[in-house]
């Protein structure tokens, strides 16, 4: 069986159904009307983090060879975070080919992204200038992150 972008596989159907019926807490999901492989998530910033009370839009797309290849995920909300860059790309291990395994689910990806918001990884930054702020002055980083939440993630 060859997966193609037009075909919705049983796996994607099942996953979509599961996501809609049992959406994890702090998450809202919308499936694109044009393309069933295209999802839009509203992810709530983890409580206690710099990003709490923010709602972040994250786009997820399932490539044609999903689940052999990982989903593609992109932030559509500006966020001041060392592992997320200006255009919304995310540095997360399970989104990379070598760490992704086909048994992982979209739900897991979304929860990992939410978790990443609460646990910035300064050892492996994507946006080094942001990481520098986080290292040099955590107070300043918190202030900027919270400001950005007010400005963009409401």
């Amino acid at each position: 069986m060859q997966y193609s972008s037009a075909v919705v596989t049983p796996r994607i159907m099942k996953e979509t159904k599961l996501l809609l019926e049992k959406t994890p807490p702090g998450v809202r999901v919308t499936v694109s009307e044009e393309n069933p492989r295209h999802f839009l998530f509203d992810i709530q910033g983890p409580p206690g983090s710099f990003y709490e009370a923010g709602i972040f839009k994250v786009e997820i797309f399932l490539p044609s060879d999903y689940p052999m290849s990982p989903p593609k995920a992109l932030f559509r909300t500006k966020v001041f975070h060392p592992n997320i860059d200006k255009v919304g790309r995310i540095c997360l291990d399970i989104l990379k080919q070598d760490k992704w395994t086909p048994a992982l689910l979209i739900e897991k990806v979304v929860l990992s992204i939410q978790w990443l918001l609460g646990a910035p990884n300064l050892d492996d930054p994507l946006d080094t200038s942001v990481a520098d702020v986080f290292k040099a002055s955590p107070e300043h980083a918190e202030k900027t992150a919270r400001e950005w939440v007010q400005l963009y993630a409401k």
Binding site: D65, M68, S69, I94, Q97, D98, T101, P102, A103, L104, K108
Partner: peptide, 19 residues
């Protein structure tokens, strides 16, 4: 097949499909 196409490292160090 995906692992073989990924190259030498991907192929020779592939793990079980379960996370």
């Amino acid at each position: 097949v995906a692992k073989v196409n990924e190259g030498f490292q991907g192929c020779m160090n592939a793990k079980c499909l379960q996370t």
